[in-house]
């Protein structure tokens, strides 16, 4: 069952990329379909990372919602950085803090770390099991629990549903 999920996900991703790149004529579509099938048969055993999320309707709805949240966070973080850069005194208070995550799956941790990098003022430097070391441009608390609350919690509640 797990193998089958991996197979389907890898195949669909490859097909979407083919449709985005190449034209929409019938011959080209058939060629891309066959090529995706061959690549998927060769490599799906090694693509273990694609078998790690839930495919029920609730998870998919949360995934769409998560993309919107991420977009809003990207816009917020850009405005924050732009404001910081144009001020003449540079009011920064940087430091490296440690946070903990509850996520178990590897794909979920990758997406969480990348989302943390895209949010305002935080940059993931090192990951070690369930602990992330994060460079924070404006440290408000050095305590591990409070830092977790203000950095990770916002994304974690969605990612927990998606990746289980």
């Amino acid at each position: 069952m797990k193998d089958f999920k991996r197979f389907i996900v890898l195949f669909v991703i490859l097909c979407i990329f083919w449709i985005l790149f190449a034209g929409k004529e019938f011959n080209e579509l058939i060629l891309g379909f066959v090529a995706s099938l061959i690549i998927t048969i060769l490599f799906y055993k090694k693509a273990f990372i694609f078998g790690e999320f839930n495919l029920n309707p609730k998870a998919i709805a949360y995934f769409v919602f998560y993309i919107f949240i991420l977009l809003i966070e990207i816009i917020k973080s850009n405005i924050a950085v732009a404001k910081l850069v144009i001020q003449p005194t540079l009011p920064i208070n940087p430091g490296i803090v440690k946070v903990k995550t509850k996520l178990k799956s590897r794909l979920g941790r990758i997406i969480l770390a990348n989302s943390i990098t895209l949010t305002p003022g935080t940059l993931t430097i090192e990951t070690k099991d369930d602990e992330f070391y994060i460079h924070w441009i404006d440290v408000t608390s050095e305590n591990i629990d409070e830092a977790t609350n203000s950095i990770v919690q916002n994304f974690e509640k969605y990612l927990e549903v998606i990746f289980g």
Binding site: I74, V81, L118
Partner: peptide
């Protein structure tokens, strides 16, 4: 935004802060 990202690279005091400005502003 691209210009401000490059300006952040110039003005920030150390590597990690430069990275913050360099990746975020240039993404958007």
């Amino acid at each position: 935004f691209l210009f401000l990202g490059a300006l952040g690279i110039l003005r920030m005091p150390d590597v990690y802060n430069r990275m913050q400005a360099g990746t975020k502003a240039t993404t958007l």
